[in-house]
Write a protein that binds this DNA or RNA. Structure first.
Length: 309
DNA sequence: GTGCTAAAGCTCCTTACTTCA
DNA sequence: CGTGAAGTAAGGAGCTTTAGC
């Protein structure tokens, strides 16, 4: 099966494309523009994805992909489809280019890549090794693998942290807008498109979800704060009204024979109290002080009743 | 069907690095 | 130039899910 995938002006063409033009999706763990997905599709990590639900397209409702996916649905990401089917055959952001024609020369990626390469690779953990092995095994990110190989040869593979370029971040952001989780295929495709390791894509999405959650938590916190302030103010006001009501009741006792009936309204839900003639729409319970029983009598009425008046 | 195990992914927390005021 | 805060890539622990046996 032919898989002609242009990834733009990559500084170094993928060697597997040079070695053999005959590529199966099994080889690359990634399937694009194929008439049908081969059985036993492997993501290159030992997992058989053939049992996946139709590429879990509930994640990507606008570009459903099925087992007999047509070539029009090249890739679950609509924005990636556009880029991959671009007129110039030059797709995706130009990133991590070795040549200096990138207008983003001031990109932190450039500086950090150079500087951090000088650190000690011994701090790399098992996961880093796993990713590195995965790169070598899958050839799914040869450029990155080459860079790592160069670092290893130089004995300075201690890149602790590599800042992603603006283009890479923007690209990932676009994919995150599509959906905030990735299936293995999408991860590999993104990694390939962006010349990143799949692990980097995975980490980026994890961190992105964490940032989203953090922002949402901050928003929720702010909302709850306002609610708390409102309730505090409401409580203060109600306490004041209660004091007024008690004062009114106390004042009416010595003169109950002379005092006219005082009608107060009280809402059962918000417990607001107001005198008759000043009935708020929220008032729901009529509190009337009569001269006969020396205590408040309540007659209930709903908000609707009040509002209907 | 059930239990065990390994692999993978996730969240959460943390660290380390970069950028900027 | 030095410094602290903010942003972010990445590591690790612990948990869950899933597939294979």
């Amino acid at each position: 099966m032919e898989l002609a995938l242009s990834l733009g002006d990559t500084p170094k063409p993928f060697s597997f494309l040079e070695k053999s033009q005959k590529i199966t999706s099994k080889d690359v763990g990634f399937c694009m523009a194929v008439d049908k997905e081969p059985a036993g599709f492997s993501d290159g990590q030992g997992r058989d994805s053939s049992s996946d639900p139709p590429v879990q397209l509930n994640l990507l409702p606008f570009s459903p992909v099925h087992k007999n996916q047509s070539s029009s649905n090249k890739f679950p990401f609509t924005w990636l489809n556009e880029k991959l089917s671009g007129d110039s055959g030059r797709s995706g952001p130009e990133i991590n280019r070795k040549t200096g024609d990138d207008d983003d020369l001031s990109s932190p990626n450039t500086a950090s890549t150079v500087s951090s390469f000088q650190m000690d690779f011994s701090i790399f953990g098992s996961r880093k090794k796993r990713d590195f092995e995965q790169i070598n095994n899958n050839n799914n990110n040869e450029y990155e693998a080459d860079r790592l190989s160069d670092e290893e040869e130089n004995g300075s593979m201690a890149r602790k942290k590599l800042r992603l370029s603006k283009q890479q971040s923007a690209f990932l952001e676009e994919s995150f807008k599509e959906h905030n989780t990735l299936n293995p295929k999408q991860k590999l495709a993104l990694a390939k498109e962006l010349n990143l390791r799949p692990r980097q894509v995975e980490v980026w999405f994890q961190n992105r979800r964490a940032r989203t959650k953090l922002k949402q938590t901050e928003v929720d916190c702010e909302y709850l704060k306002k609610c708390c302030d409102t309730l505090t103010e409401e409580n203060r006001r109600l306490q004041k009204e209660l004091q007024e009501l008690r004062a009114l009741k106390a004042a009416s006792q010595p003169f109950y024979m002379q005092s006219p009936a005082t009608t107060l309204t009280m809402c059962p839900s918000c417990e607001r109290v107001a005198t008759a003639g000043c009935v708020s729409p929220a008032a729901g319970v009529v509190v009337s002080s009569t001269t006969n029983n020396n205590h408040l009598s309540l007659s209930s009425s709903s908000h609707d009743d009040i509002n209907a008046q």
